[in-house]
């Protein structure tokens, strides 16, 4: 029994030493206070605010996550080409530096806000909130938030999106869900991008990718898509239309 590790606290006396209890103050004047709050509480509250803001404007918000170079911007360009006439799209771009991706989107006639994170490896809900100040959501149907290319850090931060879409490009290998379980566990849809390279590569097995995704208990659908050839885009676009319809 001692006064330092808590081994003298029993179910019978814990109310006395708990925060606010009669003996909560120790002899040294120190005091133990129970908090029980998520560390990302401030981010999560801002994310909730962002989600309500999207909802008020009947906007469907998608968080696109992948490693750098998996084809997030190319997917957006192809999506805009296919749906731009039917749906009003806006994009929030996250990169460490440059306006390159936002410019590619603007070239398609779609509003894009670039967040330059400097050295930060992920977007958080506050950065997205600030970007939304610069974006009018009037008449917008869907906002894509293109996260910083990174399969690790973005998974921990809720942005206020309705869905997480994770891209897994064929050159990366089909075992990415096993290597980055935190990211792929968070995915609501997994897009196997650059599917036109499946034949050339020869060693990417989409069924194995699905199996790895199920091993982490994720029931998300996987769609093979090629933004370059357009193969498989129909399934992705159908999913997107359906989800946009649900927010209206």
């Amino acid at each position: 029994m001692c006064d330092t590790c808590g081994c003298n606290v029993t179910p019978g006396n814990e109310h006395l030493v708990a925060a606010g209890g009669r003996f909560a103050h120790t002899s040294s004047g120190a005091e133990s206070v129970e908090v029980l709050k998520g560390l990302l509480d401030a981010n999560d509250r801002q994310a909730l605010h962002n989600r309500e803001y999207f909802k008020r404007h009947s906007v469907f918000a998608v968080n696109l996550m992948s490693s750098p170079g998996a084809g997030k911007t190319a997917l957006l360009e192809a999506t805009i080409d296919a749906l731009g006439a039917d749906l009003n799209i806006a994009v929030v771009e996250g990169d460490l530096e440059t306006e390159n991706d936002a410019n590619r989107i603007r070239d398609k006639g779609v509003p894009a806000i670039q967040i330059s994170t400097g050295s930060a490896c992920h977007l958080d809900a506050h950065m997205v909130h600030n970007a939304l100040h610069e974006l009018s959501l009037d008449g917008i149907d869907v906002v894509f938030i293109e996260n910083v290319g990174n399969l690790v850090c973005p998974a921990s931060f809720d942005l206020g999106q309705h869905c997480n879409v994770a891209l897994l490009s064929t050159p990366e290998g089909h075992d990415k869900p096993a290597k980055y379980p935190v990211m792929f566990r968070a995915a609501d849809v997994v897009l196997i991008t650059k599917s036109d390279l499946l034949e050339v590569l020869g060693d990417f097995d989409p069924d194995a990718a699905e199996s790895y995704l199920r091993q982490i208990a994720n029931p998300a659908p996987l769609y093979n898509v090629s933004a370059r050839t357009g193969d498989g885009m129909t399934t992705w676009l159908e999913w997107l239309r359906r989800e946009v319809g649900r927010q209206r």
Partner: peptide, 26 residues
């Protein structure tokens, strides 16, 4: 369904020289 393993929780803090009798609203 995950029942444990994704926690990121501030459980408890120990404060020094806290003013006695102050209401704890955490």
């Amino acid at each position: 369904r995950l029942i444990s393993g994704d926690e990121l929780l501030l459980q408890r803090v120990i404060l020094e020289n806290a003013a006695a009798g102050v209401e704890k609203n955490v």
